[in-house]
């Protein structure tokens, strides 16, 4: 019984971070209709950003988070201007290959510049935990859950309550009609790509004290984000949140209940992806593509 409870608490805490991670991919897709296959690398850059802030300047990852997110978003703007902009009207496969290529270049540059060594960030809260009865909750996980929740709430507020947020949703729902409203669609594409990168980087900054940081940490994160977004129906934010908690629960349950499950948990995203694509090609909640 307490194991089930522990498993649930762990999944919810993990689900918060996964939500933030997947919302970034989902938002980018909802607006541009392009799946950012370099998304994992933005997460990785965010993690390195936090690592260097911490190791070189002693700045806490959470304090560094806004600056890291903005920095990676500016980098994404450069990627957009010099490459993605040219393939916006191209077939999806061209866009995917381009972004996949961009991801590989970033990954290898990171390996050359920062070596392939696994790094980790130590914070006052990354090793402590608190007990609630039989339940053990690491402080680091609570912190990531809270920060992710705040960031998602801020994002939703921005999307629904500001002129620009409304404009970006308009582009997601009907591009031509958005143009007729006087919205500069190219600028909204750029903005959504930068937001996508910023959310990825924020996820990475928090992953820096939960996981080990390596140039290659992005790929599994991409697969997980992609599985969540597919699970939730591409582009739907409520669906994405549901998908995030579902994947978190599935992974945690496998880790707890399957013998030697900790290794297998990492494969859950692949299984989910395969399963959804075969049985529910439109996702579990989503039908049409929409940004909430």
């Amino acid at each position: 019984m307490s194991m089930l409870l522990q498993c649930l608490v762990d999944s919810i805490l993990l689900g918060g971070l996964y939500s933030l991670m997947a919302v970034g991919l989902s938002l980018g897709f909802g607006v541009t209709r392009i799946i950012n296959f370099a998304y994992g690398e933005f997460i990785m850059l965010g993690a390195y950003g936090a690592f260097f802030c911490s190791s070189l300047a002693g700045i806490d990852p959470l304090i560094a988070l806004p600056a890291v997110a903005i920095g990676v978003a500016l980098f994404a703007a450069i990627v957009f201007e010099f490459s993605l902009r040219r393939v916006l009207r191209a077939p999806a496969i061209n866009q995917i290959l381009l972004l996949f290529g961009v991801g590989l270049v970033i990954q290898n540059l990171a390996a050359i510049l920062w070596t392939g060594d696994a790094r980790s960030v130590e914070t006052p809260y990354s090793l402590t935990a608190r007990e609630f009865g039989d339940i053990n909750v690491p402080d680091g996980r609570i912190v990531t859950f809270l920060v992710a929740t705040v960031l998602i709430a801020a994002l939703l507020w921005w999307l629904h309550r500001t002129e620009l947020g409304r404009a970006i949703r308009a582009v997601a729902q009907n591009r031509d009609a958005a143009v007729l409203m006087g919205i500069n669609v190219m600028r909204m594409y750029l903005l959504s790509f930068m937001l996508n990168a910023a959310l990825g980087a924020a996820t990475g900054a928090m992953a820096s004290f939960l996981l080990t940081v390596t140039p290659f940490m992005g790929f599994p994160m991409l697969i997980k984000s992609f599985a969540i977004v597919v699970l939730g129906g591409l582009g739907s934010i409520p669906g994405t949140l549901a998908g995030a908690f579902l994947l978190a629960f599935a992974e945690t349950a496998v880790a707890y209940y399957v013998p030697d499950g900790i290794g297998w948990a990492e494969g859950v995203a692949f299984a989910v992806l395969l399963g959804v694509l075969i049985f529910r090609p439109r996702g579990i909640l989503g039908q049409a593509v929409e940004v909430a």
């Binding site: 009609a177 958005a178 007729l180 409203m181 940004v291």
Partner: peptide, 26 residues
């Protein structure tokens, strides 16, 4: 110049008010 397009093309997942507000985006 404003166009009310063929097939209406409202923003389907937004409220009526949000659609109207978008009309005055410029």
């Amino acid at each position: 110049i404003a166009l009310c397009p063929e097939g209406r093309q409202v923003f389907p997942n937004m409220s009526v008010m949000e659609n109207l507000l978008l009309g005055s985006f410029c």
